[in-house]
Design a binder for these strands. Structure first.
Length: 636
RNA sequence: GCCCUCGUAGCUCAAUUGGUGGAGCAGGCGAUUUGUAAUCGCCAGGUUACCCGUUCAAAUCGGGUCGGGGGCUCCA
């Protein structure tokens, strides 16, 4: 045993150091810049603090604030500082957990008094004090019994519960100043490395996410390595709030939610144009791909829902009613109705695949606290389809849906990612069937060379699924499209087709959506475009604005020309100044304004103002017509 | 559903310590006849979400109901 150890670095180099050297000293030996930027390191397999002593040969890579890992450690350390501040202000606090999250951190507290927003500045001020005190984070290791004793005596029941669930003999604790918390680490070397954070909100959160357990108080904070990054993020949030679909929906007169129908949106005339335009597009794309369209009833006999399995697996989310002394349910999904339609006639293998689409209005009882504008509602229209197919057609049908989804999302310029969800706890059917179905979905994804994440246990109760998650302006992702492979419903409903051999066989089915729900998709579009829809989607595409009374007849002619060619055009001939009418049209996010005055009347032209690019100059009315109809046809 | 928070005119917001609810925009009427983001004047508009209480007196304080917002849980 020598006193030297050999440390290797990510660039392939290696150097000898004295045994027991700290990570910080290694960083310093490499260079002062690294020493300053490092917050922790990976030694061998594990992440350790800068104060960690390296006792044996190992690969070492420094973790700096430039990396996601470094920022995570930074944010996590701030959550400890927040906990310490809360402890100073509320000595009776009990601590739950406090992880780093995207853009920041949170910590869950059990407090005898409710926190108010006014407490946040006080906690922030206390945190600033702790940062200034430059308290080192010290790692302590304890035997589990010892740690349990420590936290029991401190009355920290949540920590006791956490430790009891931890594997191994020892646990690690971190101390800064007089504050000690159970934590795996690593942490910043000292609180004065913290530069920019802001406490954001207080929220309720269940202990361990279990609605049967204690309701804790969670404080969310945002944090970045520099003040500039924090300011930038806060500014982004402000910009995002400006395009909130609830606000724009009201301003642009698209939809509303009334006290009389929480979660049941009303669509206004302009919202309906948007919606119908999307439906027209959707129908056309489906028609091209060999889909038929059906409509099934909203209320169906309860027996059907028992047969489908919804009664056992989905009752909590359903609405029920009674008709002529019989029990009925309002449909939460379209599939059982689709099953009945399949069964209305005998099918040959030659008919398959059968692609049956339905814009189906479904109702689901969502918890009142979960409702959110158009994004989370209690009734919505799914752009559903059920594909009945031979087992040999599974893969090509799935691929067809993936292509269709990609085609449709592309038109809107959406980025998306894909998730594969597997068998949930309350599932119907055997493991074998689930494995087979999941493997089929996987094969299709791999065949398409798509990256995907696996979401264990998140499938529908009747089958695994592929979900498409679109990314919105807040960086939130929304589940829109879904492809669910189902071997069970055909079984439950005894669906058959006659095979080549003249015998009855069981078809396989696919449930799928692209938009997901029309309502949610419209909400996402509003935020995505900040209300400034591309011309083809705009409820009003062109506003004809006449300067004076003398220009009215020609203005009407221009309007008629556009209207005859199916351009959605309105005319503003009010006795107002031009600037006033322009301003109003601009605020309504109308893509084009046509100013009609003396010059235009004389030359049969229009002065075109673009919502996005301002004054485009004068052009013959017919040229503008061609321009705008071209945009509409090209879905621009 | 649970925790916190909020609810004033169609919309966005005011209203000292509890002391007779105001403004801008939108709307109606009138004047103005207008060239690229707001012309002027007048008028009308509210059982302060709803119910119960405390008080001489409640938009304001307390309790409840309904609804909104931020989360948790759940999900298209």
């Amino acid at each position: 045993m020598t006193d030297q150890i050999r440390i290797s670095f990510p660039d392939g180099s290696s150097r000898e150091f004295p045994r027991g050297i700290t990570v910080a000293e290694v960083a310093a030996a490499i260079g002062p810049r690294l020493a300053k930027a490092a917050v922790a390191a990976t030694v061998g397999e594990g992440r350790v603090d800068l104060g960690y002593r390296i006792e044996a040969d190992a690969p070492v890579s420094m973790i700096t604030l430039d990396s996601p890992e470094g920022v995570e450690i930074y944010r996590h350390s701030i959550s400890h500082v927040m906990a310490q501040a809360v402890k100073r202000l509320f000595p009776e606090v009990k601590f739950a957990i406090g992880p780093a999250i995207e853009n920041g951190f949170y910590y869950d507290f059990d407090l005898p008094v409710p926190l108010a927003p006014g407490d946040l500045p006080r906690i922030e001020a206390e945190m600033a004090r702790i940062v200034k005190e430059a308290l080192p984070f010290k790692r302590l290791e304890m035997k589990k019994e010892e740690a349990l004793k420590f936290f029991r005596e401190a009355g920290q029941k949540y920590k006791v519960e956490l430790i009891e669930a931890l594997p191994g003999e020892k646990v690690s604790l971190y101390q800064q100043g007089d504050f000690i918390d159970l934590c795996l680490g690593p942490h910043l070397p000292s609180t004065d490395r913290i530069k920019a954070f802001k406490l954001q909100s207080i929220a309720g959160a269940y202990w361990r996410g279990d609605s049967q357990r204690e309701m804790l108080q969670r404080i969310y904070g945002v944090a970045f390595p520099t003040q500039a990054e924090l300011d930038n993020y806060l500014h982004m949030l402000e910009e995002a709030a400006k395009r909130d679909h609830r606000k724009l929906g009201k301003e642009l007169d698209l939809f509303s939610l009334m006290d009389e129908g929480p979660g049941f949106p009303f669509f206004h005339p302009k919202g309906m144009i948007l919606r119908n335009t999307l439906e027209d597009f959707w129908r056309e794309e489906h028609r091209k791909r060999g889909y038929q369209e059906v409509k099934t009833p909203i209320i169906l006999n309860e027996k059907l829902w028992r047969q489908s399995g919804h009664w056992d697996h989905y009752k909590e989310n359903m609405y029920f009613t009674r008709i002529d002394d019989e029990d009925y349910a309002v449909k939460p999904m379209n599939c059982p109705g689709g099953m009945l339609l399949y069964k209305r006639e005998i099918h040959s293998y030659r008919d398959l695949p059968l692609r049956v689409a339905e814009l189906g209005l479904v109702h689901r009882h969502e918890l009142s606290g979960a409702l959110h504008g158009l994004m989370r509602v209690r009734c919505f229209t799914q752009d559903d389809a059920h594909i009945f197919m031979l087992p040999s057609q599974i893969r090509s049908e799935i691929e067809g849906v993936i292509d269709l989804a990609d085609h449709i999302y592309r038109v809107f310029g959406f980025e998306y990612h894909v998730e594969l969800s597997t068998k949930p706890e309350n599932a119907m059917g055997s493991d074998e069937i689930w494995e087979k179905a999941t493997a089929s979905l996987q094969e299709a994804l791999e065949g398409k060379k798509m990256d995907y994440r696996v979401n264990e246990g998140d499938g529908a109760f009747y089958g695994p699924k592929i979900d498409f998650h679109l990314r919105d302006c807040l960086g939130r992702t929304w589940q829109c499209g879904t492809i669910q492979l189902d071997f069970l419903m055909p079984e439950r409903f005894d669906l058959t087709y006659v095979g080549e051999d003249g015998e009855k066989h069981r078809p396989v089915m696919l449930h799928r959506t692209i938009f997901g729900s029309m309502e949610r998709f419209i909400g996402i579009l509003i935020e995505h475009y900040a209300g400034a829809f591309p011309t083809w989607l705009s409820p009003v595409q062109v506003k004809v604005i006449s300067v004076g009374e003398a220009h009215l007849p020609y203005a009407r002619e221009v309007q008629k020309l556009l209207d005859d060619h199916r351009v959605r055009v309105e005319r503003d001939e009010r006795n107002e100044k031009l600037g006033y009418k322009i301003r109003e049209a601009q605020m309504a996010r109308i893509p084009y304004m046509l100013v009609i005055g003396d010059k235009e009347v004389e030359t049969a032209s229009v002065a075109v103002r673009s919502r996005d690019r301002g004054d485009l100059g004068t052009m013959p009315a017919v040229d503008f017509l061609n321009k705008v109809t071209g945009e509409i046809a090209g879905k621009k």
